[in-house]
Amino acid sequence: MLSVDIGLQQPYAEPGRASPPFAVHAKFQVSAGQCLGVMGASGSGKTTLLHAIAGLLTPAQGAVRFGDQPWFDAGQGINMAANKRRVGLVFQEGRLFPHLNVMQNLRYGLPTALPVHIQFDEVVNTLAIGHLLSRKPAQLSGGERQRVAMGRALLCQPSVLLMDEPLSGLDEALKQQVLPYIQRVIQGFGLPTVYVSHAPDEVNSVANAVMLLTQGVLRQPDACAA
């Protein structure tokens, strides 16, 4: 179970842009096998939220826990480094390592000491990327790239899966091709998942619950409509 209750300053606001940095507050829980969809307009702080969970930036207040393990706790001064949290983060643009082939990208986060519960072959089969293993990222299509990025995130044996608009760079046809793989990953590996997007149809087809990030606060959709 992932429990998040944090407040932070949105640091990604571009300098010179009209809107000044604003505060983001989010409180939610996601249990194993569940997928929480987080919706919001671009610039609403969705990526900021995921990066705070992953440990790439430090919230100003609150706590992030996985089970009874605190990853971040402002009160107790706990802030676990990003590389210790074991969070599978799938980025908007894939961010595959250009100098490594698909196989090396997939194996990059594979721990050598920890027990492996997500197997290489299982991931490769689920995402149907077996025929791509010797290729370099530059030789992949956009959809293939995102599938490899998902595989790479899964193989670091994460306890939580975070997806940051994994389909935003793809055209409609490719989105429809990749979407079933995302559903298979969410259902097949049973990890608590947070799926961030601005597209309602996309979120509805993968998430069990949806929350909206507006004006810096994460709320239930009905509370927002009221």
Binding site: N83, K84, F91, P111, C156
Partner: peptide, 11 residues
């Protein structure tokens, strides 16, 4: 951003 990605993969 690639270094950041590597960090999230436990590096």
């Amino acid at each position: 951003l690639l270094e950041q990605a590597a960090q999230t993969l436990g590096a």
